[in-house]
Design a protein around this nucleic acid. Structure first.
Lengths: 148, 148
DNA sequence: AAATTTATATTAGTAATTTATATAAATTTA
DNA sequence: TAAATTTATATAAATTACTAATATAAATTT
């Protein structure tokens, strides 16, 4: 159990475990902007796709609709997102990420990439190659996860 | 930028981005137990190393010492951890994860693994092999991150 | 057009978290 | 060794984030 000697088979548990560890390392990286987990999650979602309706955000995040409304209000107050009406449907609110909001995500990402780069420097060329070779497969895995 | 055609080089940005996506997919997985992010993070930390002092936990998590004290109090109330004194130092409190606490983490992990397995089924054998081949390297990367 | 559904907002209550301060044990120093 | 300092945790008060319940207003269905 948890042994990966036979590299012809992908042991999901092994993958999940190493993924967990890496996730935690990245989460623990100290960051300049002090924003809550949910706040960052919403911003991140919007950095990938903007605008989005409140309802869409509610479906994606693990908070109630009321929570999202309030969160977006806070984000708007801080100038990280903007609410705009939908010309085709008077009920909906489109949430747009602002340049400032996108910068928050980008700068955090840069920070993580810089940190990661330092760790990766410590790897052998073979290890680097192994990870590089897995990236397209990981990307497809992410796609499969998104479509589910 | 963000192009990974030359697979002999590991593009950290590409890796970070795909990692981000996978993280979010896993985080969004609906889970049975409704526990906050911080709560789960502390439990997870303890599932890897128990006992730990409050101070150690404070250093690892992104909350204040006061926050950890109160969080541990809640976890203890719910029977997920136990406080025990340190015989060698009357000031310290050792936080032990209970069987029940470990079960919370384990069952969530199983859930994630099951979900991941389904996604992975959708990959080609080549992709599976590529990911499997990268696991030892990812593990060493995690070690480098832990030692930093 | 009346009833229903959909999308968002508001209100009130609760839970989680921070800041500041307190306590108590261990260590250092004069 | 007693006093001062540091270290480890706890408590109190205030703030922030969140949920549940309800309201409002636009769109859709009957």
């Amino acid at each position: 159990m948890g042994n990966n000697k036979d590299q012809n088979k992908l042991n999901v548990t092994d993958f999940a475990m190493v993924f967990e560890d890496l996730t935690r390392i990245i989460i623990r990286m100290p960051s300049i902007e002090k924003l809550s987990f949910t706040t960052l999650s919403v911003l991140h979602t919007l950095s990938r796709k903007s605008p989005m309706r409140l309802t869409e955000l509610t479906a994606n995040e693990q908070v109630t609709q009321s929570g999202i409304t309030q969160l977006v209000t806070r984000l708007e107050r801080d100038g990280l997102v903007e609410r705009r009406p939908d010309p085709n449907d008077g009920r909906v609110v489109q949430v747009h990420i602002t340049e400032r909001g996108a910068n928050v995500i980008d700068s955090r990402r840069s920070e993580r990439i810089e940190q990661l780069s330092k760790f990766i420097e410590g790897l052998t060329p073979e290890d680097k190659l192994a990870i590089a070779s897995a990236i397209p497969a990981l990307r497809r895995l992410a796609e499969l996860g998104n479509d589910s």
